[in-house]
Nucleic acid binder design. Structure first.
Lengths: 245, 245
DNA sequence: CGGTTTCTTGACATTTGTCAAAATAGGTGG
DNA sequence: CCACCTATTTTGACAAATGTCAAGAAACCG
């Protein structure tokens, strides 16, 4: 998984060897961040696009009384809004949930990239559209799925997205989130998440141990979740399933 | 309100007269749609960008068991994802909540527009970023705001967005949604919305009659809602408040 | 091994949903 | 302008889902 970004963009377009090369060259040096640290904070002026290379991060917002909502999860290969550079002020923060390795693409480098390769241009645009679609799907989850459905849906989505960058098998993937994190992402209490997880386990649908998720019955889980992967817009087929880490 | 799109884009950049002209020329003929009709349905292949000129529409998703979630509201001036043309299949539908007048910008016309004017290019990109930011804020609302806070937040947001296209005053704006619509947008029951509305009225914060919202105490409403308009990213000031309709 | 984080449990409170019906408002044809 | 029909809003009684608080158990980390 040297280049999860290229891997991810490959789900949207067919990248040429040259595209991959340019992409690699546009990426700045790898940087590391410990868990819980911020990549960007609310109010910062974003000057580059961050790309997650290893580890998990999230976008989150905090209300003044302390309530916190994880608004989206960023997995390896995920760029943070290719056009974010156009904004003057972050309206949310991006922080590491696990230790994270990331790299930056500067604004000018990104522009050059997209000018040079129409394919990459198209890839970034599709990626952005898929990202909004995911955001919409989260809105649907929070708006009208029950506790158990939300959890099931999130698990289906995460497995799919990770599979898209070769980090998940058909029935298993890493899940380095605490129940507290899950609670913040799904708009519920960790206590309630805990009970819902037990329900899923009791029904023999999943196992979750040692930061790894195993889905025993993918079809039934997807059915419970009302999960339809169409919104991920993976137009180019996912490669051979690696039972990856 | 001849050109709500130009008005809206003016919140993100300073449009030149030429920009406005090109914009007007790129827009296809105005089309009308009765309330409840679909502009686009799930599964359709989007071939143009729809721009709302008059009336309100929404993006929504429906689960197989009938549950429905309004995922976002489209007001006059709102374009539906400038790059949507790149997708092959809609993952949600866009439908009219009131009678709607809209126009289309074809894919090629949009590309030409953005090639000709860097300002317009920038405007559409910022508009897209602001749209995602709104989607994120809805995620926050559904994830961690209570019934009364959600309603308050939505009202604050709608007034601001409408003011951005000259359709709202400082304390009043049209609100052509039924309580049923509000319920679908806020992930609650219409019965509960009804009770929450009464609570807001009882506290002397708002009035809502005849499809028009009046906010008696904007500051307190914003405070209750934890509303901070920063996420709308209106970087260019809103013009003189019209007590418009 | 000791300390910290994460997970689990129980009893209980609160919010929100459900169902069903009545009241009101709005729209249309006569 | 009235009468009637339909869509919307409002109410009440009750059920279900989820949150709160507090404490103990287990896992993880150095």
């Amino acid at each position: 998984m040297l280049d999860p970004l290229a891997e991810k963009l490959s789900r949207y377009v067919n990248l040429s060897v040259a595209d991959r090369m340019w992409l690699a060259k546009a990426l700045g040096p790898a940087r590391s961040l410990p868990a819980r640290a911020d990549l960007i904070d609310v109010g910062d002026d974003p000057h580059a696009v961050n790309v997650i290379l290893e580890g998990w991060a999230c976008r989150s917002r905090q209300l003044i009384d302390g309530r916190r909502q994880i608004v989206s999860l960023l997995l390896p290969g995920d760029p943070c809004d290719p056009h974010i550079v156009l904004l003057d002020r972050m309206d949310h923060s991006v922080s590491a949930l696990t230790p994270v390795v990331y790299a930056q693409i500067s604004g000018p480098a990104l522009l050059e990239l997209m000018a040079r390769s129409p394919t990459l241009d198209r890839a970034f645009k599709r990626e952005a559209l898929a990202t909004v679609a995911i955001q919409r799907e989260w809105t649907v989850s929070l708006g009208c799925r029950s506790g158990i459905e939300r959890l099931a849906h999130l698990f289906c989505e995460l497995r799919c997205r990770l599979a898209g960058v070769g980090l998940a098998g058909r029935t298993t993937c890493p899940l380095p989130l605490t129940q507290h994190d899950l609670a913040h992402a799904l708009g519920q209490t960790s206590v309630h998440i805990n009970r819902t997880l037990q329900e899923l386990r009791a029904q023999g649908l999943i196992a979750l141990r040692g930061r790894r998720l195993t889905i025993h019955d993918p079809d039934r889980l997807a059915e419970i979740a009302h999960f339809d992967p169409a919104y991920l817009h993976f137009t180019v087929g996912v490669g051979p399933p690696a039972e990856g880490e």
